[in-house]
C-alpha cells in the first residue's frame, strides 16, 4: 500500500495525524501501538477458546471447574488478558442453547476469542439478538431442534461469556488437539454449532 497522502482516505490521514500528534506530545509510543496490534493479530484469538472447549469436552474435572469458576479455569490455561478478567462459561445442552450479545456496546471475551467480528459490533445483531434470537440463528444457518430453548446473555456488565458448544457425536476417543479443530469462533458466541467430524473432513 502506498503511504503518501494522495492515496489515503480522509480517515486514514486523520488517524495518521492523530498518532503523530499523540507521539509528539508523549502520550503514546507507536512501538506500543504496533505491539498491541500484533498481539491481537497473532496471539489472542479463538484458538484460545477452542482449547478451553476441547479440554472441557475431554476432562470432566476441568469442565466442572469451568462451570463453577470459569475465570480461574480459563486463567489456568494462560488465557488471562483484558476483556477476560471476569469470565462465565455457558454449556449448551439439548434443553438450552446459549447466545451471547452486547446490546449496549460490543463487550466480547477478547482473552479467549480475540477481537469481535464486525457483525457482532453492528446494529443489526445487537438489536435483534435479544428480541428474535431464532431469526438471527437462522441467518447463521442454525436451526435448533424442537423443544430446545434459547438463553440470550446480554453482556451488560464486565462478565464475559464463553459458550461451550455440545461435543459433536462420532468423536469418541478424539484427542484434545483434534477436537479443537471442530470448535469455531461462532460456536463459542452461540451463532454456530461445533463442526461435525463429517463436515470437518
Amino acid at each position: 500500500m502506498p503511504h503518501d497522502h494522495s492515496h489515503m482516505t480522509e480517515i486514514e490521514a486523520r488517524v495518521r495525524a492523530l498518532e503523530s500528534l499523540l507521539t509528539e506530545k508523549g502520550y503514546i509510543d507507536p512501538a506500543a501501538v504496533d505491539a498491541i496490534v500484533q498481539t491481537y493479530e497473532t496471539e489472542i484469538g479463538p484458538r484460545n477458546g477452542a482449547h478451553v472447549v476441547a479440554k472441557a469436552w475431554t476432562d470432566a474435572d476441568y469442565a466442572d471447574w469451568l462451570a463453577r469458576d470459569a475465570t480461574a479455569a480459563i486463567h489456568s490455561l494462560g488465557y488471562m488478558s483484558r476483556q477476560g478478567e471476569h469470565m462465565a462459561a455457558c454449556f449448551n445442552t439439548a434443553e438450552t442453547h446459549h447466545l451471547v450479545v452486547c446490546t449496549l456496546c460490543s463487550c466480547y471475551p477478547w482473552s479467549v476469542l480475540g477481537l469481535p467480528p464486525t457483525w457482532y459490533k453492528s446494529p443489526p445483531y445487537r438489536a435483534r439478538a435479544v428480541r428474535d434470537p431464532r431469526g438471527v440463528l437462522a441467518e447463521f444457518g442454525v436451526t435448533l431442534p424442537e423443544g430446545t430453548g434459547v438463553e440470550v446473555h446480554d453482556s451488560t456488565a464486565e462478565m464475559r461469556y464463553l459458550v461451550i458448544p455440545q461435543r459433536p457425536p462420532g468423536t469418541d476417543g478424539w484427542t484434545e488437539d483434534a477436537l479443537m479443530d471442530l470448535v469455531t469462533r461462532d460456536s463459542m458466541i452461540g451463532t454456530g454449532l461445533a463442526v461435525s467430524p463429517e463436515a470437518a473432513g
Binding site: 450479545v101 449496549l104 453492528s122 443489526p124 445483531y125 438489536a127 435479544v130 428480541r131 441467518e139
Partner: peptide
C-alpha cells in the same frame, strides 16, 4: 440498540 430492527445481520 436492544429490541430494535436494523435489518439482517
Amino acid at each position: 440498540l436492544g429490541g430494535r430492527d436494523f435489518g439482517p445481520v
